[in-house]
Design a protein around this nucleic acid. Sequence first.
DNA 1: TATGAATGAGCATTCATTCAT
DNA 2: GATGAATGAATGCTCATTCAT
Lengths: 197, 197, 197, 197
Amino acid sequence: MGQRGRKQGANGEERRARLLSIAADEFAANGYFATKVSQIVKKAGVTQPTFYLYFESKEAIFQELITSFRDKLSTLTKNSKLETGLDHHSLPERIAVGLTAILQFFSENQNLTKIGFFMSEESEEIKNQIAELITENLTSEQRDGYFRSDMDMRTVAESLVGIIERLTITYLFQGKKQPNELAKEIINLLLYGLQTK
Amino acid sequence: MGQRGRKQGANGEERRARLLSIAADEFAANGYFATKVSQIVKKAGVTQPTFYLYFESKEAIFQELITSFRDKLSTLTKNSKLETGLDHHSLPERIAVGLTAILQFFSENQNLTKIGFFMSEESEEIKNQIAELITENLTSEQRDGYFRSDMDMRTVAESLVGIIERLTITYLFQGKKQPNELAKEIINLLLYGLQTK
Amino acid sequence: MGQRGRKQGANGEERRARLLSIAADEFAANGYFATKVSQIVKKAGVTQPTFYLYFESKEAIFQELITSFRDKLSTLTKNSKLETGLDHHSLPERIAVGLTAILQFFSENQNLTKIGFFMSEESEEIKNQIAELITENLTSEQRDGYFRSDMDMRTVAESLVGIIERLTITYLFQGKKQPNELAKEIINLLLYGLQTK
Amino acid sequence: MGQRGRKQGANGEERRARLLSIAADEFAANGYFATKVSQIVKKAGVTQPTFYLYFESKEAIFQELITSFRDKLSTLTKNSKLETGLDHHSLPERIAVGLTAILQFFSENQNLTKIGFFMSEESEEIKNQIAELITENLTSEQRDGYFRSDMDMRTVAESLVGIIERLTITYLFQGKKQPNELAKEIINLLLYGLQTK
DNA sequence: TATGAATGAGCATTCATTCAT
DNA sequence: GATGAATGAATGCTCATTCAT
């Protein structure tokens, strides 16, 4: 036997997944344009035509990564909505749960996050979508009396997105802080502010 | 006569500035890779060799734009440092001054801001630099007792940078809010937080 | 059961014929180069390796179609030779018989005719061969006194081939005229000409 | 001086014309698909980008050749219309003038003729257009009493086109007959037919 | 100072064909 | 007999950059 001329256990699905993963590495490292199909296939140990066996085009594989990111993030964001009837004491830690999950996802999927959140033309759109979802959650929570009533929750949501994206890069991706730590700090800042007590 | 084949009053300096400005338009609109030197010169009404008379390369003109952005932003950020001895009442509006100036600059230089803040490989570096400067300011201000002492000012600075970048795109560039309005909202959020009073 | 993954009753011969027929469709519709083996097999519901089980190559299947056309046409042309001893009255309709048979064949085998007569590199050769055969017939018939003796029968034969090919496309393939009608018109023109009587 | 790195006297227009001419050679010899841009530029002694300096694409240069052929042929065909009031004696030689001009054009532009008349997807369209123009001429001439009134002139026109295309290939392009000879023979056949007098 | 003309180097994509099973 | 998977070898086209003038 010996699998001559073929990578160990490389059936179609695996090959596809492997290409997708390597493509994510490359796109994340070099950006869309500087990433060459030739590099991807080289690292995957296949030839160029094989690439086109699994993906329509370079653009298509990139889109697939983005869509994957967007879908997962959407779900996580929707799931982070607070239930009603919480008492104010438990609020911070309840919020932390959803935020930690999102940061955890970013932490575990750095390449995907870089691509979807920072390098694609759709990044803005994705962030807008997330901000929109967060706005819905916050507004609803504001009505439940969890937050000050004199603030525009869309602005808060956009700010939160900005904070998340920035701290994700500077702390999470650098391994300087853990998702739950970061979540707590963000919440601490956003709930109580900087003012001297 | 005498000006045939040449734009009215297009001496070297003007031509250079014109190229730089058009390049900023193009880079901001299409990104680095999708912007072609051929497009820039076409819009500028000059030939390709002329472009290389003024700029070393496509990369070089891009860098020049970035450097210009970085320098101006650095200066503004440094200038936003608070003087000592302020009383707590005037704090918010004093902070707003510097922040407004920065947002004003972004608002008036959208192309440059897009390029320097959102599309270049140096964007991270620039934001880090800004965050560093802000951290210094905040830490100093914290020591002056303006802010809670139990918060890591680097994290706050990074958060602030994130908020600024996000609101710049979603509100400032859309013309939805003015620099000073936005500055106030940001400060309001960061000083007092979301908690129900 | 037992036929799973295989078209009902698709034994080797049938499958081969099916591929041949579909290939004829495709070649006739799109030409040699624009026809892809992948298309042919897709329409035939088989895989590419199966194609190569029945045919040496894309070129080979094309050649087989051409050869088939050429052989059938040769036979028909040879059969259209007039017998000796005809009287001049019956001449036109006797000629019409052979010509009709050829046009009938074209009409019933449009794909094959397009391929063999109009799209292959051998088309010229095929037409030459037909012209040669017709020349023999005409010359023989000229010797029998059926035609003017002052005309070069090779030129006439080539002209006839030209007329046939043109009217085949413009009338026969469009369904505008029937083989026997067309035959009569051609003969009418070639025998009596355009001159005002 | 010495024109180093540049072909003798190769300004833009000449280069373009040279490429066009070589492309005509190649297309005529090998067909559209088998002709590679790389071959054309090699024979022209330029690089591939130079090709794209003058032509949008391989398709575009091919179309330019076809359009050129079509336009010239259209003009010649229109010019071949007979004036009214000719007496029947001079008819044949008057017809011969226009036909000779067309054949002369084919003879002097073999490559262009091959491409436009025999190898392009538009060939049918071009022939139809020519047949249409000829039909107009013939019908008008028929009304002037030059031709039998019981024949459908569209059919005759198509037949004439068929004859012309065939004899062009077999006699003209082979150098076996001159345009005027061929014109006379065609007219002789079409006017008087094959019948024994 | 300015340009018409040219190119080196590269890239995404295609397709007929072939193994190993 | 049949196929899932793979590829060798091209090919059209692009673009930043540079001469010769």
